[in-house]
Design a binder for these strands. Structure first.
Lengths: 231, 231
DNA sequence: GCAAATTAATGATTTATTCAAG
DNA sequence: CTTGAATAAATCATTAATTTGC
C-alpha cells in the first residue's frame, strides 16, 4: 500500500496527445518515495568509510551514505536502504530533471552532472550516474515515443506542435523531443510548490547556456561507467 | 485489453469509478509529461540562492549538444581542447591490456579498471575511461573481425591469419563475447620485452580468476561516463 | 482487505554505430 | 586505415501501481 500522493504532473502539458492512439495501460505514477522508508533495517550507524575497496558482496549498506543528503529537506525521505537497489527518484527530482530536459539539456557533461546531482541530492539519495542514465533513457524514450507518434500520424504531414519559438522570450522551453535540434517551444508559467526547484533549474538553464559549453577540461574527473559485473 | 487513452491526470483517486467501460485502468505514467500541472503539493523547502542571470544568452539552446547524429554536415563544432588529446597507449600498456583480454577479461568493473589503470599508469599517462573504452572497442572489433572472417570463409576458405587452430576449432572464445562468462582462452606465449608488464598481468589474472566473478556489487564507486562535451 | 500475479514504466547495462584524431 | 571516444539503440532487470482471487 501506498499512500497516495499528491500531485502528479507538474508543470506542463505535453501537447502531443496521443489521441486516437490507444495507449497501453500506463503505469501509475510512481510518486515519490518520500515516505515508505519501509522498515529500515536496524542498521544502526554503520561506519561508512569502508566501502571503497573491498568487495564483499554483502556490503553497501544504504545507511552508509546518509552523509550525502544533508538536509535542508525535511525528514529524510526514504533511505535507500538495504542492499543497493536502484535509484528511485522522488517527485522533486523528476521535476527538476524534466525541467532541465525541456530546457534543452540532453547530454550533460561531467561537471553539469555533478552540479545537478548536488541539487537533486537535497531531495533524496542520488548519484551522478543516475542523472546520467536518466538523461540517456529519457532522451531515447522521448525519441521513440515521437517516432511512434509520427508513424501513427503518417497522415498528417505536419508536426506543428514542436516548433521553435523565435527569440525565445524566456521561458522554459519544452522541447518535445527534438532530440537533436533542441527546438524550443513556448511554455506557460504557472506556479507550483516546486517553485524553488524550478527556480534552481531555471537559473541553471540560463546560466549555462549550453551552447557555449564546448570543452574545457571537465574531463579531469576520472569517471567512467561502471560495470557491476555479472548481469 | 488495455485500451485506453492516456491519462491526463488524476487517476489518483480510486479506481472505483472506472465504470464498466473497460477493465483496464489507466495508470498514469509517472508524471512525466502529459499531465496535470499540479498545484501545490507540499513541498520541501528549497534553498538555493537564487541569483538570476539576467542575461539570457541568445542561444540555440540545446542545439549544440545534440546535433550529433543527424547533421549531415560533419561540421566540427568542437574546438579541440587545448591540452587534451586522446590517449595514446604505449607498447607496454597495450601489451598488458591484450594479455588481460586474452585472459578472458571483457568488461572490467570499476574496481578492476581502477587497478588496471593504476598499473598501466606506470607506463604512461592514462585514465580509467581509457581502459574502459579500450575493452569496449577491442571486444567489439574482435567480434566484427571474426564475423567478417566467418562470412568471408563461406566463400573463400582462407587461412585465417590469426585464428585459433588447435583443438578449439571455431570455438575461439576470444572473440566470442563471452562478455559475461569470462571464459578463458588459450593464450599463446610470446616474448617481449614487456616481461614485467606481463608479470603483473599474469598475476592479476590468476589472482582474480574471472570465471568466478559472477556478481558482486563492485559498484561502490561513484563513476559514470563523462561527456566532455562536444565531441 | 490482503498477497500473489500482472504489467507498464523505467533504471541500469550492454552492444552497435558513428565520428574523428593521427 | 586503425582505433580512441562518444552516442544511440537494444536489452536486461527491478520496481510499484493495479488486478485478481480468496
Amino acid at each position: 500500500m501506498k499512500v497516495h500522493q499528491f500531485a502528479r504532473g507538474f508543470w506542463e502539458h505535453e501537447p502531443s496527445l496521443t489521441l486516437g492512439c490507444k495507449r497501453l495501460r500506463p503505469l501509475a505514477p510512481k510518486l515519490s518515495n518520500t515516505d515508505t522508508p519501509i522498515t529500515t533495517p536496524p542498521v544502526t550507524t554503520f561506519d561508512l568509510k569502508s566501502f571503497i575497496k573491498p568487495e564483499s558482496p554483502s556490503i553497501k549498506l544504504g545507511s552508509s551514505d546518509d552523509n550525502k543528503r544533508d538536509p535542508p529537506s525535511p525528514q529524510a525521505q526514504e533511505t535507500h536502504i538495504p542492499g543497493g537497489t536502484r535509484w528511485n527518484p522522488t517527485q522533486e527530482q523528476i521535476g527538476i530533471l524534466e525541467m532541465l530536459y525541456r530546457g534543452g539539456m540532453r547530454t550533460p557533461n561531467a561537471q553539469q552532472i555533478e552540479q545537478i546531482t548536488a541539487q537533486l541530492s537535497k531531495y533524496g539519495k542520488i548519484e551522478g550516474k543516475n542523472v546520467f542514465y536518466w538523461f540517456q533513457n529519457h532522451k531515447a524514450r522521448e525519441r521513440q515515443k515521437q517516432k511512434r507518434n509520427n508513424l501513427g500520424l503518417a497522415h498528417s504531414p505536419r508536426t506543428p506542435t514542436t516548433l521553435v519559438s523565435p527569440p525565445f522570450s524566456c521561458s522554459v522551453i519544452s522541447t518535445l523531443d527534438s532530440t537533436k535540434r533542441g527546438e524550443i517551444v513556448e511554455r506557460e508559467e504557472e506556479d507550483s510548490p516546486l517553485k524553488k526547484c524550478r527556480s534552481w533549474a531555471f537559473e541553471y538553464l540560463e546560466e549555462q547556456s549550453w551552447s557555449s559549453w564546448k570543452e574545457e577540461e571537465h574531463r579531469t574527473l576520472e569517471l567512467f561507467p561502471l560495470h557491476p559485473e555479472g548481469r
